[in-house]
Design a protein around this nucleic acid. Structure first.
Length: 364
DNA sequence: GCGATCAGTT
DNA sequence: CACAACTGATCGC
């Protein structure tokens, strides 16, 4: 859960990624991406009642986030109240205060956040200044600096506050291998195993609902093997993902989730022991100067670096890109405040920055 | 039967 | 160790 309560000091009548408590009185709602810890209260009866009474209240998000959200019947009641905004298209929104009838316009721009499908950052411009809410993001060095909408003319916009994803905003996470490096490391490990025979399979132990899709599509594209997942109806309108995933377990790459995954993939394994070591911890960081992307953690298990969040240096360049005029930075994660006093520590582990791969021989 | 909260998992 | 993102168990209505 983010430490962010949902409201920004400049625009307290907007609520972002939080939908409980005081947020029940917001004039407009924003959802940066479709992860549960950013959706607290979004399907609560109290908010549902509010929507029924306040017909002018809407939820703003990207088209992909809308699609993912409405795949779950639990959120269907939002259907006609969601406004999908195109990414990188400044949009004016009129906000009405129901009590006073007072109206105010604000311009919001969605910027791609690189965290998971549909994830965006929100840039708000209005009477109380320009503020940037990053949500969760993974942007490589320079990606934010290249975003034209953060600039006016040749200069960075005068952003007075940044509400920042501070998950890895700590010198211990100074550098995390790039998306491409991690992808390639995983690709070669998977390739080396599944080319041994058609019975050699890999299971990717994915913990979040969304965020691994670019891994799946790249593995499938490169290896010509579709990835087995539990459900794919959420991707029904995303052909570029849909093409690379399958619910057919007769494939060599699995990302399905099931208490006894091996049996589900291959019931014939029941009488056999399939012992793999569940890795407890893995250390990335300063200890291994040359950062290993893949580390063997057991007989048939590996841990690979894979992060949905920017490293410390990437966060720093993000802050720099949002302008030197920015005077206030509000952390969105808990870690930041705890670590303000901590000095540089030369070891780090990050569970949330990795994916576990299990390799084994299936018997079908 | 539902949601909110806690306790565990990776 | 922490972390994010999630499950599942339990409690209260």
């Amino acid at each position: 859960m983010s430490s962010f309560g949902g409201r920004m000091r400049e625009y307290p009548w907007l609520s972002i990624d939080r939908f409980d408590r005081e947020n029940l009185r917001a004039r407009a709602y924003f959802l940066s991406h479709c992860h549960k810890d950013h959706m607290k209260g979004l399907r609560a009866p109290s908010l549902k009642r509010r929507l029924e009474c306040s017909l002018k209240v809407h939820l703003y998000c990207s088209p992909v986030t809308k699609e993912l959200l409405l795949t779950s019947p639990k959120y269907k009641f939002w259907e006609h109240r969601i406004v999908a905004l195109e990414v990188e298209t400044p949009t004016q929104i009129s906000l009405l205060d129901e009590a006073s009838g007072e109206k105010e316009d604000i311009v919001v721009t969605l910027l791609p956040a690189g965290h998971c499908p549909g994830s965006v950052m929100f840039l708000f411009q209005g009477q109380n200044g320009t503020v940037l809410y990053t949500g969760d993001f993974r942007l490589a060095k320079g990606e934010a600096a290249r975003m034209e909408l953060l600039h006016s003319g040749t200069r960075v916009k005068d952003i007075q506050s940044v509400y920042l994803d501070t998950t890895f905003c700590d010198p211990r996470f100074y550098q995390i291998p790039s998306r491409e490096e991690c992808l390639n490391g995983i690709l070669e490990l998977v390739r080396s195993w599944i080319t041994l025979s058609r019975y050699h399979v890999v299971w990717l132990n994915c913990k979040a609902a969304y965020g691994y899709e670019y891994l799946f599509t790249n593995l499938s594209e490169e290896l010509g093997v579709k990835v087995h997942v539990n459900k794919l109806d959420m991707f029904k309108n995303m052909p570029e993902i849909l093409y690379h995933v399958t619910t057919d377990r007769h494939t060599q790459i699995h990302a399905c989730r099931h208490p006894r995954v091996a049996l589900w993939i291959c019931p014939e394994m029941e009488p056999f022991t399939y012992n793999w070591c569940q890795p407890s911890t893995m250390w990335f960081g300063e200890r291994t100067r040359k950062t290993n992307i893949i580390v063997r953690t057991g007989e048939s298990s590996y841990r690979a670096c894979f992060s949905f969040h920017s490293s410390y240096s990437e966060v720093c360049t993000m802050v720099f890109a949002s302008g030197m005029n920015t005077s206030i930075i509000f952390p969105l994660s808990r870690l930041f405040s705890k670590l303000k006093s901590s000095s540089l520590i030369n070891l780090s582990s990050y569970g949330s920055c990795s994916i576990i791969l299990i390799i084994f021989v299936a018997l079908f």
